[in-house]
């Protein structure tokens, strides 16, 4: 490369910079530079997630094809889909899938019903309603482990503020609501609803507040009563918020762990043994890494199927809305 010296130009008496002497400095066009800049900004997050989330997930997929137990690593062997067929044949695993499904559907349904009612009550824009919303969101912020412990204490049949009276009036068995296989799961659904109904209400409320007021007023002028307005006008228009709320809560309820861990830890008699509890016990208590990975991957497949189904549903709803 030619060395260009900067020297005084005798004719003009000015100093020429090296750049001025190199006729066309190699410079990328602006849109290329911007593209490179954006890639540079996005790359760290992408690389990070690939390394710390996707790489472990890939290894989890690999583990699931091995009989791999940390307690006897010497006996590690490739078993193909062996862990998956064992999962399917395993009574406890099948029961766990069923428990998780029941918990998820019931919790989301309860939270949706209560959340919608709550959102309608909070709809009016007043200082009272705003204060209520702020205070109602407190359960969302409480450490889930603490939520479990609070209700475990309150529901204890021997000294709990609620549990004692339930037991003494015969409304619960002597072991309390959480200690009885028949009532443990419904109780956990109620506890989950306590923590997450306000969140459901918040998402639905955001949807309600974005509804066009003209349509609501028109319905009122037409003499529709409150229930008709809700069913025929509000709910159809609220569909995007309803979808969002249901999807968010379904994903989270499906992955419930903390509350169950700190109340029943899967018991009594496996009545609350949801998939997260099952997988964590298999993996980090019995160190049955291969089998636990298969359970975890099953959960991912369920979530993926659910996500795709949801996207298709939303697309169809959009098409219908556009067609009408």
């Amino acid at each position: 490369m030619a060395i260009v010296e900067s020297r005084p130009d005798k004719a003009s008496g000015r100093t020429l910079s090296p750049a001025a002497l190199v006729p066309a400095r190699v410079r990328l066009p602006f849109h290329r530079r911007r593209q490179a800049f954006l890639v540079l900004l996005g790359a760290p997050a992408l690389i990070y997630v690939l390394l710390v989330a996707i790489w472990p997930l890939a290894r989890g997929v690999a583990y699931s094809f091995y009989d791999y137990n940390l307690l006897r690593p010497a006996r590690t062997a490739f078993v193909g889909f062996g862990n998956y067929s064992a999962l399917w044949a395993n009574e406890a695993a099948r029961a766990s899938i069923e428990t998780t499904a029941i918990f998820t559907v019931a919790a989301v349904a309860v939270e949706f019903g209560l959340g919608l009612g709550l959102a309608l009550l909070l709809w009016r824009d007043s200082a009272f309603q705003r204060a209520c919303l702020a205070l109602l969101l407190i359960p969302v912020t409480v450490t889930p482990i603490a939520v479990g412990l609070i209700f475990r204490a309150l529901l204890a049949p021997d000294y709990g503020l609620i549990g004692y009276y339930l037991a003494s009036f015969g409304l619960s068995g002597p072991r309390g609501l959480l200690g009885d296989p028949n009532t443990a799961l419904p109780t956990l659904i109620a506890v989950d609803a306590w923590q997450w109904t306000p969140f459901m209400a918040l998402i639905l409320l955001a949807g309600l507040k974005s509804l066009p007021s003209e349509a609501l007023e028109a319905a009122e002028v037409d003499g529709a009563n409150a229930l008709q307005r809700l069913r025929l006008v509000i709910l159809p228009m609220l569909r995007p918020a309803v979808f969002l709320a249901l999807v968010l809560r379904t994903m989270d309820a499906f992955r419930i762990f903390d509350i169950v861990f700190s109340t029943t830890n899967g018991g009594p008699a496996d009545a609350t043994n949801v998939l997260m509890i099952y997988a964590v016990k298999q993996g980090l208590e019995f160190f049955n890494i291969g089998f636990a990975s298969a359970v975890a991957n099953l959960m991912i497949v369920c979530i993926a199927i659910f996500s795709v189904a949801f996207i298709l549903l939303v697309r169809r709803a959009d098409k219908e809305a556009n067609a009408s």
């Binding site: 996005g42 997050a45 992408l46 997630v49 710390v52 989330a53 996707i54 790489w55 472990p56 997930l57 290894r59 989890g60 583990y63 994903m251 499906f254 992955r255 762990f257 998939l275 997260m276 997988a279 964590v280 993996g283 980090l284 890494i289 636990a292 990975s293 359970v295 975890a296 991957n297 959960m299 991912i300 979530i303 996500s307």
Partner: peptide
């Protein structure tokens, strides 16, 4: 598409990453 990829990462059940991550 990438934005949705990040969204999808958030739906992964924690146990699925925790087990291999623990070993790593």
């Amino acid at each position: 598409g990438l934005a949705y990829f990040f969204l999808a990462v958030r739906t992964v059940p924690p146990v699925a990453t925790l087990l291999p991550f623990y070993l790593m």
